[in-house]
Nucleic acid binder design. Structure first.
Ligand code: SF4
Ligand code: SF4
Lengths: 133, 133
DNA sequence: TTAATTACAGACTTAATGTATCCATGATAG
DNA sequence: CTATCATGGATACATTAAGTCTGTAATTAA
């Protein structure tokens, strides 16, 4: 029960992009360097963000990744869902039995966390962050 | 990023004990039967609950497991922490850098979920639950 | 048109963790 | 003493995470 490293990479990458180059596309290499992670691996993660519609990609020279849509609306939850998936944290008998209280309570607790993550935007973090790593 | 099956087993077992036999010790066999899980495996999980002080165990004939302390105080969070551990869900550079906002926000979101789980007691569930599975 | 640059996809390897079984040991009641 | 019960260690198996490698497609600059 832990967030994957991939989620960590994704959050940092989004923060980095927003802080450094919010407009121009940036290649995977500098993004990978900044986090000391392999470019090919990071590219896999970024592709998930692309498919989730959070960023867009451009092939070819001067290509790379760029933020998409209204930057100030991108939440932590968006990024986490893009990387970890949207399935519930608590899976039991499979039947979404609405009578079961254990199930309901666990779901409710998870939603409390999601609510918090939904209301936390990277944009706000990007403003204040020392970007020192 | 999922709760382990062990957590599921632990929650059900605690609910079962509280609903069926809140006083007398019950062996691992009937507990395992009720969830169609191997007794030896479940016993490992129960041992964690023992070490966390949520239940107590008695060896020998007529032994087994029994709830401990004030039953109405046992929360979901107690059980989950006993099984999954108490480490944070989000681990990054390791340095508990208090300047880092990503870290802070993730921690804060997790605490929102924990707060919910802390305020959810199995005792209340045990009252209402149909116990049908 | 060609060559350099860049993202993308799939197969693959390795490591870590979760799930589960088996058995030996020890404690306890009758 | 014996049957019953929990505990611990070793082991095996499955699943997922983490990372690498390589080829392909798209795009731009020369
Ligand atoms: S009783 Fe509830 S928590 Fe348990 S397996 Fe059924 S739906 Fe899931
Ligand atoms: S910048 Fe913050 S979130 Fe990132 S590795 Fe450092 S402490 Fe962790």
């Amino acid at each position: 029960m832990k967030y994957s490293k991939a989620t960590n990479y994704a959050l940092h990458t989004m923060l980095y992009m927003m802080a450094i180059s919010p407009d121009k596309p940036v290649g995977v290499q500098p993004l990978a360097d900044a986090q000391k992670v392999s470019p090919t691996y990071l590219s896999k993660i970024l592709t998930k963000l692309v498919k989730a519609g959070l960023i867009e990609s451009a092939s070819g020279a001067n290509g790379g990744y760029r933020l998409r849509g209204r930057q100030e609306d991108i939440s932590f939850l968006d990024i986490i869902h893009a990387v970890e998936g949207t399935a519930s944290l608590f899976e039991c008998c499979g039947s979404g039995d609405s009578r079961c209280l254990i199930h309901q309570e666990m779901l409710s607790a998870e939603q409390a966390m999601e609510e918090k993550l939904r209301n936390t935007k990277i944009y706000e973090i990007a403003q204040k962050h020392p970007m020192s790593r």
